[in-house]
Each structure stands twice: as structure tokens, then as C-alpha cells.
Design a protein around this nucleic acid. Structure first.
Lengths: 275, 275
DNA sequence: GGAGCGCTGTATCGTATGTTACGTATTTTG
DNA sequence: CAAAATACGTAACATACGATACAGCGCTCC
């Protein structure tokens, strides 16, 4: 079974004429980057002419050069999705059925945070900790519990935190309460829910800042969002995983709490004396 | 010091207009692959027009689109050269407040699963997938969302799954419905809630099997529980983390679904035909 | 409420890119 | 050794890609 293009090449390199073999070797040498550049650059690097490059990719079975490049990109995508950790990590000490799930989740967490900058988090924290506005939270069919989880914590450290529960018609009416200073935190992963998109659109029109938790394919709500957190959701299961978004939510909860403490919010002091 | 383009983007994303910000978010979400494709594909993925993409790369300081792509490719090249360094990267590339939280969570996950035997998981899965009994789920102040999350999934793959919501007096009455064949899944971490303990005790007396998700110090409910899942909760935050329990829950959800598929449950087949 | 500014998309343009045809060189085979 | 077949590069071509000019729109600030 030949899975990668590199294998395909080494499989057929024996049957190639001299020029094409040089192309193959050049590509393998700095795989796969040369293949992503233009035919002219590739041919120059290999020291052959451009038609030779094209004949080379044709021999590999591709209809044209762009198709070849797309294949390389897809390969790269797959490689980047599941980072090297899988190759490094010792064959899991706990070899059972749980382990692939755990490994995938660990990867998802690392990848999610790798794509998340401190600045972005800091911006969101600043907005959430801004006590001048209200905070609303809502999620989709499977992610609404995450909205509840976040709301449960935030509502303790600051006032004016509301989880939008119940039927669509109910929380749509809450739009009246939302204005420019307010934040709407939405959790929405595939399959994206129309009702949430409509909510987001209306809220956006009212000037509400939207913080969106979504998956890496980005909910259409990203269009209206001020801040987008894209979490990895792929796991070996029939369901997508929201674990990465959950951990980001916990991180934000912690950071907002710390921020409010730093601000010396009276509420925090009162809370501590209550305990 | 700004080294990667991703950093550059998150640094300036705050100063960008809406359209360009969408471009930035799209790129970050599946970094850096979209940026290697054509302007047209990039713009389509981001849901903006091509000129917006070009303005976006111009704002990042690139003279033209090809130059931007070259920069991305160079970055990729450096990354692919030393794949190990990226996965390990102890001096976190993202050294701020988020990282300790992430590290602690990763540790918690690993530790939690290390203390979790396959057999234990298998037993719980078998019980949850047993269609002869009903499944009830409930959680505490902060963990009830986890119960909801689990219920939302389980209720799809099998009938008779109920989340106990609302006031204590309400769900206490549901005890009447519970019998020997039924399962009660309880989430309870510090500070343990008396109301849940009382519920667990009564349910236990009625012969209900209890599956308890708790922290490493074990809720008093452990005394009545048939199965206990102890998750690590310590993180550098004012709050405890439920992430480990969340991931165990997702693992169980996936395993139960797989089990039911293996059992050839009619419901699963019907579900698939519905989609 | 009105004027100005900035952002965004549509449509057009020039060009760099991939593609192909053809002629020459090189190798292979009878 | 000759003749044919294969391989390779040059050059012309067409397409699709990135770039730009312009107009419409919404927003902010007087």
C-alpha cells in the first residue's frame, strides 16, 4: 500500500529517465517544499527544464501540476494535524481502547493552544473582565453545557453574567438587553446551528462583541465574531470532542478571575469574606 | 521579538478591520495551509473577497502575495527540519499565562488515565450500554454541565437517558423511577454537595448502580458507588479543573456508542438512515 | 442630522504560470 | 554502424492568477 507521495516516488524512481530522476531526487531531498513552489523554481533547483518537471508529475499519475501540489498540501495538512508527538510518545503504557482517545485529545489540546496567542487570550480576558458590560453565554446542542460551565464560574466572580437557556424564542428576546458594551460568548461546532447564526447576526448588528468557540473549520458565526477560538475536535470516536474548547474555557475562567483580583474588585473581596 | 507569521498576525489582529480579521482568523485556524493556496481559495474559505486577502497580507508587511507565501513556506521548512523541537518545545512558544494551565491539564489527563484501568472502563461501558435499564445523570454546581454533556450524547444513541435538572425537590421525586437495573451517573467534586450525597444514598438503597465522577479526594458518595472515576483537578487557577473528568466522559460516550454499534442496536441503524 | 472617512466588494487589467508543440540530441537496437 | 525510438529543451501559447481602479456602503465624528 502506497500512502504518501514520497513512497510513490521511491517506488517508481527506478523506471524514470535521467532528467525526471533528478527531479525526483531534488523533491525528496527537501520534501515537500520544492513541490509547492512554481514549476520554474522546481526545474531550476533540479537543473532541468520545466517540461521535464511536468512529465515527472504526469508519470506519478497526476493530471496536471496544480493537482500534484494539492496532493502535497493535503499530505502536509494531515501531518500537521497530528503532530510529531504521536511518533515520539512511547507506545502507550495503557494500551487499551481508552488510549487512542487520550492521545488524540492530548494532541488536540496542544494544537489548539499552539494556534492561540497570548495576546488573543489577553484581549478576550480584558473584555470579559470589563465590568461595564454584561456577559451572555450560549451554546449548541452539544456545546451548551460548556456555556453553562463557563457561566457557572463567571457568574460568581462578577455580576451580570447570563446563560441563555431554554427555547430559541425565549433567548431571542434577550437580545433587547444587549448593547455595545456587552459580550456574547457562543459555542458552536459542526454541525453548525442556524438558530445560533441568526442570534449572532442580530447581536452583531446591535454592536455586541461576540466571542466564538468553534472547531477548526470555523462556524459561519466567525463572520460576526470579534474573537474566534478554533479548537481541534478530531478524535477516534463517532463524536467530535469538545475537550480542547473546554480547557480553553477553563483557562479563560481562571484568567478572568485573576484579572478581577488584580483589579481589586470589591466583589472578590466580599466573596472571600463570605467563605 | 516576533519570529513567526502567526505571532505577527495575532499581534496586529486587533488593529485590523473586520474583513481582514476574518482572513487572519481563518489562516490561524488551519495554519498555515490556507495561505499556501491561491488567493481565490483563501478568500472563499474566509468568506471575503480577494482584494481583502491582498490587503491583509499587505498589512502584514509583505509586498505581494507570492512573497507572503514564500515566507510561509520558509517557516514550514524550518519546522519540518526539526520536527522534534516543535513537539517538545519546553520553553513554551507561548509562554504566558495560558501555558502553565495547559501543562497542568495535560498532566492531569495523563495521571487520571493512568489510574484508570481498561477493565474499569469496560465495566462501566457495559453497564451504560445495557439497554434493559434506564440511565440518570446529575452533577453538582460546577459539574452539572458535564452531566448534561454526557446526557446529550447518550440520549441520542439509546433511549431512557435522563438528565436530572432543576431543583432538588424536583429530581428527588424521580427516585421513584429508579430500580435495580438502572444507573445513576453523578458528578461531584469539592466542595461536595450534601444534596447529591443524599440522593446517592437513597438511590443506592433502592439498588441503583451508581457511577461516580469525582476528584482525587473522593466525594463521600464513593461509599455508595459501584464505579468510581477519580480525576485530577489541580491547576494553577483559583478554580479546580474538570477537564480530566470531561475527557473521561467523552471516552465513555465514544465507547458506549461503539458498543451499541457492535451490538447491532436497531436504534443506531435507524439513526444513520435518518441523517 | 449631515459631511467626511474608511472599509469592502465588483469588475477589469496585465502578467506570470502551467501547458503544449516541435525540433534536436542521445541512446538503444537490429 | 545505421536507423529508429526515446528523452530533453526551446519557444510559443492560453489560462488563471494576482493586482488595481473604482464605486457603494456603513460608520464615526462634528
Amino acid at each position: 500500500m502506497i500512502s504518501s507521495i514520497a513512497e510513490l516516488i521511491s517506488d517508481r524512481i527506478g523506471t524514470m529517465p535521467a532528467g525526471e530522476r533528478r527531479a525526483a531526487q531534488t523533491l525528496i531531498a527537501s520534501y515537500p517544499l520544492i513541490g509547492l513552489k512554481t514549476v520554474a523554481e522546481f526545474s531550476a533547483a533540479a537543473g532541468v527544464s520545466s517540461p521535464t518537471i511536468l512529465r515527472f508529475v504526469a508519470r506519478l499519475g497526476f493530471q496536471n501540476y496544480p493537482e500534484f501540489q494539492s496532493a502535497l498540501q493535503d499530505e502536509l495538512a494531515a501531518q500537521l494535524q497530528s503532530p510529531a508527538s504521536r511518533a515520539l510518545n512511547p507506545p502507550s503504557p495503557n494500551g487499551g481502547a481508552a488510549s487512542p482517545m487520550l492521545e488524540a485529545t492530548l494532541d488536540n489540546l496542544r494544537e489548539t493552544f499552539r494556534h492561540l496567542s497570548d495576546k488573543q487570550l489577553a484581549d478576550i480576558v480584558a473584555k470579559l473582565a470589563d465590568r461595564r458590560g454584561k456577559t451572555f453565554l450560549i451554546g449548541g446542542r452539544f456545546t451548551d453545557p460548556l456555556a453553562r460551565y463557563m457561566a457557572a464560574h463567571l457568574a460568581i466572580v462578577q455580576p451580570n453574567v447570563f446563560h441563555l437557556a431554554g427555547q430559541e424564542s425565549v433567548w431571542r428576546d434577550r437580545l433587547i438587553d444587549m448593547g455595545k458594551r456587552d459580550v456574547l460568548v457562543i459555542f458552536d461546532i459542526r454541525r453548525y446551528q442556524d438558530s445560533l447564526v441568526r442570534l449572532a447576526e442580530t447581536a452583531h448588528q446591535r454592536g455586541v462583541q461576540i466571542v466564538l468557540f468553534t472547531d477548526q473549520w470555523l462556524s459561519p458565526i466567525a463572520r460576526f465574531a470579534r474573537h474566534v477560538i478554533a479548537g481541534r475536535t478530531a478524535v477516534p470516536s463517532a463524536w467530535d470532542s469538545s475537550a480542547a474548547l473546554f480547557v480553553v474555557a477553563e483557562t479563560l475562567i481562571g484568567a478572568v478571575t485573576r484579572q478581577l483580583e488584580a483589579d481589586g474588585a470589591k466583589r472578590i473581596r466580599e466573596l472571600e469574606s463570605l467563605r
